[in-house]
Computed example of a mutant assay.
Amino acid sequence: MRTRPTLNWTPAEDLPPGTTDAGPVAEMLGAGGVLVLSGAGLSTESGIPDYRGEGGSLSRHTPMTYQDFTASEQARRRYWARSHLGLRTFGRARPNAGHRAVAAFERRGLLAGVITQNVDGLHRAAGSEGAVELHGSLGRVVCLSCGARSSRGELARRLEEANPGFAPVAAALNPDGDADLTDEQVEGFRVLPCTLCDGILKPDVVFFGETVPPERVERCRALVRDAASLLVLGSSLTVMSGLRFVRQAAEAGKPVLIVNRDATRGDRHAVTRVALPLGPTLTAVAARLGVSVDVR
């Protein structure tokens, strides 16, 4: 289960500090067979905030839970109004140098796969078409009654037509794609049902309090089993949905390397943590390995 995020976790004092030497990253990638596990920190350079970093959204925002969404029509109105507005900005985000570097490593044959905890679709947009989206994608919508999946773009078009003139000013954008709005700002927003069965529509993402589909978890576990090593990019590993793969790799004796500016819950399982910004670091590593990165 993807648990509600918390700010109460603090790193153990006996863990070593992160290094600023990117050499271990280059060595790991140069050896090949690397499985990448990415988190929200990889997308911050694309303008998408993270949850727990400096200025992270959890200091002011509690993400919607599955239980709240399914239990309350008002909660769904609040979610869809905020998400619909947030999509106008979220949907304009483009892959950054970090995403493009990961795609370049994949093209060179250095990766065993990519697992992302992000729901922004930026790995796929950068060219990592086989990336496993652990928590789903905001680019799709699913009906909770009939299970039909459809394009988020199509729903956005329908919501625009149903809510003409809806353009409140948001206080901030959050990593899950919604915007901070007051109850007064979302009042009267019209939520639309499934076009096939009139069921409740939900973004095709794993909400906090919801379980990641077992077949998706097993697919990720298989990637860990087949990989030579695990490279974590921009994740605090606070929630178990990602941490379990770090533990699996470490228990199998496979080296784990983390690139994250702040300490993570997985540091004790890692060979080292590289405390450097992701985009410049991965671009520099690519140059060192002679890997060409798309500079779009």
Rank of each mutant, 00 (worst) to 15 (best):
F166R: 02
Y51I: 08
V186A: 06
A112S: 08
D14E: 15
A170N: 11
C143T: 01
N96A: 10
M64E: 07
L223N: 08
V142M: 07
Q185A: 12
V271D: 08
A270W: 11
S38C: 12
P168V: 08
V205F: 07
G18R: 01
R52P: 02
G41A: 05
G147H: 04
V293Q: 08
L231R: 10
G279V: 02
G18L: 00
T20P: 04
L155C: 11
A287K: 14
G109A: 06
R273W: 01
T195K: 12
V293M: 06
C197I: 05
R100G: 02
R268K: 08
F245K: 12
V141P: 15
S235E: 01
R268W: 00
P49C: 07
R82P: 08
H123M: 04
V259W: 09
A12E: 15
S235G: 00
V293Y: 06
S83A: 13
L181N: 03
L230H: 04
G139P: 10
A170C: 10
E129D: 11
R2C: 13
T10D: 10
V142T: 11
L231W: 07
G86N: 08
L134N: 13
H84S: 11
V205E: 06
P168Q: 06
G56N: 02
A75I: 06
V239E: 14
P213D: 12
V132F: 07
G41F: 06
W9T: 02
L289M: 05
G209S: 05
A286E: 07
A287W: 12
V102Q: 02
G18M: 04
S46R: 14
V239N: 14
S83P: 09
N8Y: 07
G41E: 04
